[in-house]
Design a binder for these strands. Structure first.
Lengths: 153, 153
DNA sequence: TCCTTAGATTATAATCATTATAAATAAAGA
DNA sequence: TCTTTATTTATAATGATTATAATCTAAGGA
């Protein structure tokens, strides 16, 4: 965990930014909620517990900075709020998401799965792919289980 | 073109909505700009040319209604504005997008390309896919041509 | 025809997420 | 220490979207 923060510190320094206490607190929250797809507001509320004097604008600035340095990814599921995800270290590509239309849960897929598709797209459309966003909307296994259980009662 | 509007009229009636003049004007604008990924504001400004008395709220309501009936798709490229696309008639799946990080152009891919990926995801994650969103970020052929031309000068 | 009712629309205000601003603070270097 | 620069804070502003209330319109009956 500490080494993870140290590496982020180095990344900041490499771009001549500092890991201020506020920034460190924000990163810690992101590390503690790596699975969670937090919004800026979510991060703000959580950071306030460990650094009560922090302001919302600072959280926004920090998240933007981290996004710029590709330490976090900013995603958008269409509900009007941006969400921030710590990048997997060494991940060449953005991971994918499964959004459940029943319960709203968001699961992640770490595998790439798109290599073949990207080859086709690059050739056919003469488009040099740098990144991708793939989200599936559907019914998650939890809701699936729940409804088949309901049916059998 | 007229038949296209007639069919949309039927879809509305089937859900017991009417194709009012304002709604028709909005649909016409969408038809005329099928390639364009308009925002609500864009649609509003264009509709005002053919129906000057229309209000922004009506445009929003109409777009929301059309989205609900799956006549248009609401997309989100992460720039804080929702964009509205007329669905291809008979399209089983949402089309994909190529967003150029140089010039901001958005091109469309009509092919599905994801069939294999979806089979894998449904099996491996026990997730019943209903729809998907796939966007590639990269350099479009126009910017690519432009920069290789610059280099040769 | 007139009345009633329900649906649509308009203008406007309100809301929510996000960004900009200006003053205050802290840290780094000379 | 003094000066410069980056950073943060609180607050105001912005921009997209949604809600509200008043008004309008069309359809169906008496």
């Amino acid at each position: 965990m500490e080494t993870r923060i140290d590496r982020i510190k180095k990344q900041l320094h490499a771009a001549s930014y500092k890991l201020t206490p506020q920034r460190e607190a924000t990163v810690r929250i992101l590390l503690e909620h790596e699975e969670d797809h937090l919004s800026a507001e979510d991060v703000y509320l959580l950071v306030k517990d460990i650094a009560p004097e922090i302001g919302l604008a600072t959280v926004y600035r920090t998240l933007e900075l981290l996004t710029e340095l590709k330490i976090v990814d900013k995603i958008n599921f269409g509900d009007g709020v941006s969400r921030y995800d710590l990048r997997q270290e060494g991940a060449a590509h953005f991971h994918h998401h499964l959004v459940c239309i029943e319960c709203g849960a968001v699961d992640e897929i770490q595998e790439d799965l798109l290599e073949d598709v990207e080859t086709v797209v690059e050739k056919r459309f003469n488009f040099q792919i740098k990144d991708h966003r793939l989200t599936f909307h559907g019914i998650c296994w939890r809701c699936h289980d729940r409804s088949s259980q309901d049916a059998s009662e």
